[in-house]
């Protein structure tokens, strides 16, 4: 439950197919059919408490309407009909879709290039870069917002300093239409190193024999990248993409932290997740908020599933 809020973008990986179940299902295994639950049970018990129960509760809540005056009434699927016809919900959904189409490729592209550069062995100070670029992942969101809020300041912040020095007139990223790219920049900053590490780790296990073969063929470095490295880490690329898609759909931390600095551009329905949050915390519309969360969860699953199918099919 916390995970989505923290800077772990994690769940994504779970969407990739599970590791192939080792083929040898021996007799031993049949005899101990239930032993597996002994190991998985504790996780699932806590999981049920902190994930499944709140979801079940939300499903229940989504069937009711509670008014400040008048109490609670059963409304069936009315809340769902309302979400699907709610322009504010679709405004936010459209925005995260746009974000996903632009920010995710940029971020993953940079991550991949850096991973390839570090893996190439052609860098000075390789270990330093690997750690330095990963560091932002360790910075708490509250602190990140403080830093970027300052740096984005047009009048007194770094953008202002820059304009004064060079006579440019870059508008304040937080009080203009640039606020979406500004959020994209923070997300990119936070997760470039994280994705880089995933790609880099995948590159580390490309079998040596493949390189040896390439050397014998006299392939150049670009050829090695396109013909060997990229295909070899396709799995990691798909996983990171799915990760980032879920992360985009759940975009919340960065806009919510920047909202006080840019209230007129970051509306209460800026992203679907922010909308659900505002509904329950400012408007006490718990029922409708739960419905928004469920609809968003279903949309996310559909998109992630489609991407996974496409990614895996190409591979086949």
């Amino acid at each position: 439950m916390l995970t989505p809020l923290v800077k772990e973008r994690p769940h994504l990986t779970t969407l990739a197919s599970p590791p192939a179940v080792p083929k040898t299902a021996g007799r031993m295994r049949l005899r101990t059919r239930w032993t597996g639950w002994g190991f998985v049970g504790p996780f699932m018990a806590v999981f049920a408490l902190v994930f499944l129960a709140p979801i079940a509760y939300s499903l229940w809540l989504s069937l009711f309407q509670t008014q400040l005056v008048g109490g609670t009434t059963f409304v069936g699927l009315d809340n769902y009909a309302r979400v699907l016809a709610d322009p504010q919900f679709w405004d936010g959904t459209g925005r995260v879709a746009l974000f996903l189409l632009v920010q995710v490729p940029v971020m993953l592209g940079i991550s991949l290039l850096v991973a390839l550069a570090i893996d190439s062995g052609r860098l000075y100070g390789r270990d330093f870069f690997r750690l330095a670029i990963f560091l932002p992942y360790a910075v708490p969101g509250v602190v990140a917002a403080l830093m970027w809020g300052f740096m984005y300041g047009e009048r007194f912040g770094l953008v202002g300093n820059f304009n004064d020095l060079f006579g440019t007139s870059i508008p304040d990223p937080l009080s203009s239409a640039l606020v979406l790219p500004a959020i994209g920049n923070i997300v990119t900053w936070e997760f470039v190193g994280y994705n880089m590490l995933i790609f880099y780790s995948a590159l580390r296990v490309v079998p040596t024999s493949l390189y040896e073969a390439a050397e014998i063929d006299g392939a150049g470095p670009w050829r090695v990248i396109t013909a060997i490295k990229l295909p070899a880490i396709r799995g990691a690329l798909v996983v990171a993409t799915i990760f980032s898609i879920i992360g985009s759909f759940q975009l919340f931390n960065e806009p919510s932290i920047l909202q006080p600095l840019s209230p007129n551009y970051i509306s209460t329905h800026y992203t679907p997740n922010l909308y659900a949050y505002s509904l329950s915390f400012s408007g006490q519309q718990y029922n409708y908020s739960a419905t928004v969360a469920i609809v968003m969860g279903v949309l996310t699953m559909i998109v992630a599933y489609v991407v996974q199918l496409r990614g895996m099919r190409k591979e086949a």
Partner: peptide, 10 residues
């Protein structure tokens, strides 16, 4: 925005 560090700075 009121109460931002930029505001105090100004």
């Amino acid at each position: 925005p009121a109460w931002s560090d930029e505001w105090f700075q100004g």
